[in-house]
Design a protein around this nucleic acid. Structure first.
Length: 488
RNA sequence: GGGUCGCUAGCUCAUCAGGUAGAGCACCGGCCUUUUAAGCCGGUUGUGCUGGGUUCAAGUCCCGGGCGACUCACCA
């Protein structure tokens, strides 16, 4: 093999030249089709004259006739070429066309002897010659590394992968419809921020040359969306990317898509109902039902209402300890086999216990409520429980899918809570977003805010185990080796 | 970043007592005008991820490196 493109490249290139020598343009232009293959298939009738285009996926030659399978964006259909229909010259040209090539055809529909809906081709055009072999037709492409790095191959060959991304698109479209119909305004706020606020993750840093300042890719849009509440927009949402400079895993991609919603004059309980309605409607759209049996054998059930339980009770059910009131939380944690360090606060131990023992086992949609105020600086506290917040996280299939709270709109308290958080931070360069607090000082209406991780929602609704299966181009380490770092 | 596992033809996989590599599909040539994982006959295909080491001999054993999957940590 003299070329990394493989042994067949030269062969196919020779095929291409042979075609060009007899005057065939191997890279055609516009081709108007009359219907997609799916449209043809639905209510298939014999005797229709149609034009279609797509990629040749299989070839079955029979001497003076040839069957091929052609795939377009919607479906697959068998085509039939006969020497005495298209003529000897064209028939010989067609023999040079290979699996992987993209063609346009015109012909008449008919059923074969075996009852297969087929298009009897009367004329064809080569639209694009493929120079590299496709993965195998029967086993498809399984190597996940190739599937992610060369997603185009994955999409050509694996129909179920196509379907996942069509579903993803449908879900996002329906989310937009849902909020638009309720009077929400879709907005776009900065992805590049001079201060990465609204969450606690490590940001990606970049630099603006003309301004001469560092900028951060946003870790959340929250503080900007709340400025819009101050601005009187009252109901806003944004569906866009967040960037977090953290580890990559089955559930984490450095850039991921987040829906954030803010509704003035509402609270986190309104957000709960909104979430229930939205997600159960999406389930009906995708599944035709609010529940479905998953690959792991469990039936995931989004039928409303969903279970609601406080964080403390959820932990108490499993560990039999009330970490809010237990005298020595460190001791109690050790007795429950929770890994804690001496400097952890009571609140941190509580959430640690939840993450260690409860979260992973919550399969059905469950609202976990009343998170400790010390860990939620942007959430409003509960009137008679000043150390707890009016917040919920939605857990589905053992992972966080949504997060919402009654937004803190008291600027004095907001400043104090942000400062408290800053004091605990290791990073002494961090500042609080003064302009955000200033905005609150002008007056923000009480509001409910909600964030839903779109990738994880799509994972649940498409029964995907890895976030890489719902992101077209997930982040991977580059294949190319940097020679300088080679022998470290 | 740590741990475990993986990497053999374009793809899916074999070879595993260390003796210098195979099958199916794809591809090339021949036959075949309703096949559909078409069929029949013949054929080509590999720095066995990479770099060292042990050995008469390494895909196979040992060590370094790369990438990936899972997992722990960080986080959503």
């Amino acid at each position: 093999m003299s070329d990394e493109r493989g042994q067949f490249f030269e062969q196919k290139l020779a095929n291409l030249k042979a075609l060009e020598e007899i005057g065939v343009n191997a890279y055609g232009k516009r081709f108007e089709t009359t219907s997609t293959l799916e449209e043809l298939r639905d209510g298939f009738k014999e005797g229709q004259i149609v034009k279609a285009a797509g990629r040749m996926m299989a070839y079955r030659g029979h001497g003076k006739s040839i069957f091929i399978d052609m795939k377009d964006k919607s479906s697959k259909m068998q085509l039939y070429f006969q020497k005495n229909i298209i003529g000897e010259d064209n028939f010989n040209i067609f023999k040079k066309i290979e699996i992987g090539d993209i063609i346009g055809v015109e012909g008449e529909t008919f059923f074969t002897r075996m009852g297969e809906p087929t298009l009897k081709v009367e004329s064809f055009t080569l639209l694009s010659k493929s120079l590299l072999p496709l993965p195998e037709k029967w086993h498809g492409l399984k190597d996940v590394e190739i599937r992610y790095r060369q997603r185009y191959l994955d999409l050509i060959v694996n129909d179920e992968v196509r379907q996942v991304f069509k579903t993803r698109s449908m879900i996002i479209k329906n989310i937009r419809n849902f909020f638009d119909s309720k009077g929400f305004l879709e907005v776009e706020t900065p992805m590049m921020q001079s201060l990465a606020g609204g969450a606690t993750a490590r940001p990606f840093e970049t630099f603006h040359n003309a301004l001469g300042i560092p900028l951060y890719l946003r870790i959340a849009p929250e503080l900007y969306l709340k400025r819009l509440l101050v601005g009187g927009l009252e109901r806003v949402y944004e569906i866009n990317r967040n960037f977090r400079n953290e580890g990559i895993s089955r559930r984490h991609n450095p850039e991921f898509t987040m829906l954030e919603v803010y509704q003035a004059y509402a609270d986190y309980e309104v957000m709960m109902e909104l979430t229930e309605t939205l997600v159960s409607e999406l389930a009906k759209m995708v599944w035709g039902d609010t529940k479905r049996e998953m690959k792991d054998g469990n039936v995931l059930d989004f039928t409303v209402p969903w279970k609601r339980i406080t964080l403390t009770d959820a932990v108490k059910d499993v560990c039999s300890v009330d970490f809010l009131t237990v005298e020595d939380p460190h001791k109690a944690a050790r007795e429950c086999d929770i890994e804690v360090s001496p400097e952890m606060t009571r609140d941190e131990i509580l959430t640690q216990a939840f993450e260690s023992f409860v979260e992973g086992n919550l399969y059905q949609p469950t609202f976990i409520t009343e998170y400790p105020a010390s860990l939620c600086p942007l959430a409003k506290t509960i009137d008679d429980k000043p150390n707890l917040t009016a917040r919920f996280e939605l857990i589905v299939r053992g992972q966080e899918l949504a997060n919402a709270y009654s937004e803190l709109n008291n600027p004095v308290e907001q400043r104090k809570r942000l400062m408290d958080q800053l004091d605990k931070s290791d990073d002494k360069n961090k500042r609080i977003d003064e302009d955000f607090v200033k905005a609150l000082e002008y007056g923000m209406p009480p509001a409910g805010g909600l964030g839903i991780g779109i990738d994880r929602l799509v994972m649940a609704l498409t029964d995907s185990d890895s976030i890489r299966d719902v992101i077209l181009f997930p982040q991977l380490k580059p294949e190319a080796v940097d020679t300088k770092s080679e022998n470290e």
